[in-house]
């Protein structure tokens, strides 16, 4: 799982998602941090302030691109203009690899702007893998697919989510961005064991891990990326690195965003779990 061909053989350490409220602080204080992840779509523009900020960030930090609109699971034709813009941005950022989600989001050219769950079928594996391959071929950099939080399951599904993710990654020969918060959220919503998930995905393909907060309600959990990461999610994280080794780790915080220092401190908590695993102090959650 550490530096591998799916993350461009990088060992970036711990990073945070670059967010607008932190621009000023980051640009003026240049805080110490391994790397930033950007949402590609926010910088796939023709000019103006977003690109100016990005240029300045690139002067001091490594940036990895993470997207929200490739919709690997959609059946619409891939938008060539979108890919052209993405490739142009990737050349600017020199991102060592790039990720997007295991989801769909558009139909007949209409975009939902959401990460919608895919029915886990053989047909969907084939469709999704072929799209990832096409994107990877065009971009000429490693592409990773991220498991999403989901709130619905389909009658049509023929396999579990981890089987689907594994099949897609193998068939597309791509990396995995393992979001351990999303595993927690989906496990809660669908009643599966998160550790069974971890034990059944090809961890050697994991290029990066996401951690984040979420919002728990009486009957469901939503992936809101708000608040600190809860202990149960850190536990899944720790198990993931115990099984697969430490890899690039990133905290996402998108709602009620606190100061940069709070976000960075939350991300750096990961170091504690890395140390526990390294020194054998961690007791596996799997009996």
């Amino acid at each position: 799982m550490p530096a591998n061909r799916f993350n461009g053989f990088t060992d970036l350490g711990i990073g945070v998602g670059l967010r607008v409220p932190h621009y000023r602080h980051i640009l003026s204080e240049k805080p110490c941090l391994g790397w930033f992840e950007i949402i590609s779509e926010n910088y796939m523009v023709d000019g103006g302030r977003p690109l100016e900020v990005l240029e300045e960030i690139l002067d001091s930090y490594t940036v990895v691109q993470h997207g929200v609109s490739l919709y690997f699971g959609s059946t619409d034709p891939i938008d060539r203009e979108q890919l052209r813009k993405l490739k142009k941005l990737a050349k600017k950022t020199k991102t060592p690899f790039l990720s997007d989600h295991l989801c769909w989001g558009s139909v007949d050219g209409k975009f939902t702007h959401d990460l919608l769950p895919i029915p886990y079928t053989v047909e969907a594996v084939k469709n999704t893998a072929s799209r990832i391959k096409a994107v990877q071929d065009y971009l000429e950099i490693p592409v990773c697919v991220e498991n999403v939080s989901s709130y619905a399951e389909f009658h049509a599904s023929e396999m579990t989510e981890w089987q689907f993710l594994s099949e897609v990654a193998e068939q597309a020969d791509c990396g995995i961005l393992l979001d351990v918060n999303n595993i927690y959220v989906s496990a809660w919503n669908h009643g599966f064991n998160p550790y069974e998930y971890l034990n059944n995905v090809p961890l050697e393909r994991v290029a990066q891990i996401h951690v984040a907060g979420h919002s728990a309600f009486d009957k469901y959990v939503l992936d809101t990326h708000t608040g600190p990461v809860i202990d149960e999610v850190w536990q899944i994280y720790t198990e993931a690195i115990r099984l697969g080794g430490f890899t690039n780790t990133l905290l996402e915080w998108d709602a009620d965003i606190p100061s940069f220092d709070i976000v960075r401190d939350e991300a750096l908590k990961a170091q504690r779990f890395v140390e526990e695993v390294k020194h054998g102090h961690y007791k596996s959650a799997i009996a």
Binding site: V20, S215, D223, E252
Partner: peptide
């Protein structure tokens, strides 16, 4: 002066 941007989080 800066717009809120896209994210993959659920919106409230």
């Amino acid at each position: 002066s800066d717009k809120t941007v896209e994210s993959n989080a659920v919106i409230e």
